[in-house]
């Protein structure tokens, strides 16, 4: 039960970082050829987005697999979709806070008694079931897998309001430590600031010169 593997992976990766508005974006290129991008909030230091670059087996354009944060929407292919979930179907979103992992499942109108949320340590996931057999989901928790922990039932709390099921999982101490260690590593990464204030002042200077 430790996070040394993950920490080593982060440490040895080729990293670059840029600050955009109030977000710090870090790009990793790992030794095995994988690529990952993270986005940290500058205000809270909490991770907001993590995406992995994936190759198709048959080649073609690589795509980004979203682990955390909003799905990317393509603007021009909307009318050419093959098949998509209806808008009334449940949508799962994930969010990290300082002390919790949080999932929200919207569009679930059934009463609170319908749901059962259980930890499934064998598969390192949380299983959501409904007694009316309308919704079923195994939620993977890669964060726990990275520090070689299994989910346990005591850390899960569930709420239901406004057609939304909110599942909160209290971050274990080891995970908190891991996040801290990673942030320490990231401190030493050179960061280019894409600062809007600087840009406008630079522009002003240039205009005054003319």
């Amino acid at each position: 039960m430790s996070f040394t593997n993950w920490l080593n992976k982060i440490k040895t990766a080729e990293k670059s970082s840029v600050i955009n508005r109030r977000n710090r974006r870090v790009h990793y290129k790992f030794h095995d050829g994988q690529e990952m991008t993270e986005e940290y909030s500058m205000d809270t230091g909490v991770l907001q987005r993590r995406v992995w670059k994936r190759e198709n087996t048959l080649g073609g354009e690589p795509y980004w697999e979203v682990e955390l944060g909003e799905k990317m929407r393509s603007l021009n292919n909307e009318d050419k979709f093959i098949l998509q979930k209806a808008v009334t179907e449940p949508v799962l979103t994930k969010r990290l806070t300082k002390n919790n992992l949080e999932w929200r499942i919207r569009n679930l109108p059934y009463p609170f008694e319908t749901y059962s949320v259980t930890a499934t340590p064998e598969e390192c996931c949380i299983t959501v079931r409904t007694t009316n057999k309308k919704y079923f989901k195994k939620i993977q928790i890669p964060e726990l897998a990275r520090c070689e922990l299994k989910p346990n039932q005591q850390s899960i709390s569930v709420q239901h309001q406004h057609n939304t099921l909110i599942i909160t999982y209290k971050k274990p101490q080891l995970l908190l430590e891991m996040e801290k260690e990673v942030l320490i590593v990231l401190q030493s990464v050179d960061t280019e600031a894409d600062d809007y204030d600087k840009c406008t002042s630079l522009l002003k200077e240039l205009m005054e010169k003319q």
């Binding site: 979709f81 098949l83 998509q84 979930k85 057999k133 309308k134």
Partner: peptide, 20 residues
């Protein structure tokens, strides 16, 4: 097109694109 699919545990509605 619309299709409703189910497994023993769940049920979901899908919108179908033209080709499918």
């Amino acid at each position: 097109g619309k299709v409703t699919l189910k497994t023993t545990e769940m049920e979901t509605n899908y919108d179908l694109g033209n080709k499918i």
